[in-house]
Design a protein around this nucleic acid. Sequence first.
DNA 1: GGCGAGATTATGTATAGACATATGGCCCCG
DNA 2: CGGGGCCATATGTCTATACATAATCTCGCC
Lengths: 247, 247
Amino acid sequence: MSLAASRGRPESSGRPTLYKQIRLDIERRILTGEWPPGHRIPFEHEIMARYRCSRMTVNKALSELAQADLIERRRRAGTFVRRPQYLSAVLKTPDIRAEITTLGRAYGYELISRARRSANAGDRERLGVKGARKVIAITCRHNADGVPFALEDRLIDLEAVPGAASADFAADPPGSWLLHHVPWTEAEHAISAIVADKPTAGALDIATGAACLVIERHTWRKARPITAVRLIYPGESHRLVARFKGS
Amino acid sequence: MSLAASRGRPESSGRPTLYKQIRLDIERRILTGEWPPGHRIPFEHEIMARYRCSRMTVNKALSELAQADLIERRRRAGTFVRRPQYLSAVLKTPDIRAEITTLGRAYGYELISRARRSANAGDRERLGVKGARKVIAITCRHNADGVPFALEDRLIDLEAVPGAASADFAADPPGSWLLHHVPWTEAEHAISAIVADKPTAGALDIATGAACLVIERHTWRKARPITAVRLIYPGESHRLVARFKGS
DNA sequence: GGCGAGATTATGTATAGACATATGGCCCCG
DNA sequence: CGGGGCCATATGTCTATACATAATCTCGCC
């Protein structure tokens, strides 16, 4: 008997494998909101009829989506789109505004400085690049309910993001702007702790010598550095929380 | 023909399903460092002989591990344990010994105190339980190349892990012991920063008032608390690194 | 020795069928 | 109307087999 790859498929396009196609189709519908959280996905039975494939193939696609926590499967009841992904979104989200508003607190933003300059040695090292180029350097502060929440010190590589030159970051924080304008493919975070020096303490309204949590995030798009940011949080009042499932 | 569940299995215990058993066996060997990054996992062919099951069953286990980025599969070459999973290595691994040895440093361990007691109010709150019960409280230190790496302060719920009562944690750190004896299903981490007080600074061989990174981890097995641990790392010399792919 | 073609092999995808298991719903009984 | 038990059903696991694909290895040719 012929393989599915040689048969017609409802929404064919390139041609990954069949199960991957099914997986992507469903994924797309979930991510675009066409199938909102709680929505019941068609039964395996219906999907296999739709794609004219065996149940194992459908099952493989759905199992992967379940492992990725996009859907939830319940015997006898069916398969459902999962509620929002709680958790380590803190680390995955490059957007502090979203982080604060999901906590139900009022977001505030203050631009402290913004400069356009040729990258110096320190800038190049932070971005992990070698050649000469222009960068934008920004420092700003994020507040939650009027209280300092985090200090941000960011570099943007203008060679990778030319559009940033014409953006003033007076109203929107650079993280949000970048998120909307430049999709990233890879990000690396380093978390460490420091004690606040006098200027940092002043900006965060904490005592000099208090502990701070530092998150340094580097973001790339296809191996090309986009931005490097250093976020300083008051250490004892802020906690990064992440939840994992084991097996 | 009889199902695999009715056949003998090499390292049987409770009895998840066969593929899950295979997955857990491999996972354990990776997380404990028995199979270090780069190690070639037995071929599907060998695993199916070992568990006397069909290739599809082995394949399902390996596919899930691959999706979780714990292993990497290469046609014709075989299946390999992936290189340090930064985040996953640090946050997902409840085993500091494995973390240090993957860094290529010599692991050292010192038990500082071990006590068995009835849980007091603070213990119950840390574990997130209400009723009376016995717990084991442990403090110990992990070293890398002879230098203090982290301080550990741990509570183990004896109701969930009765076997811990008969384990002395003189040679093996409790994290490793638990990993070998109690599979977890969920874990939550909270990361914060503190300044070292005098005893902490002394134990970590750093200056009083230096910044420290604190990781508090709670682990459950099917909604039942197993252990709560607080790890203190020297803050400026230690960085938690996490890398994400964007899609 | 260097190189390309082909054989080999491990994984990747897919099939059809079988039985296991959990559970939402229904029906019946009190 | 409430509760208990049974049944239908959707997912969960597993088998045995087949062919696809990619990469390594080998061998023979120049």
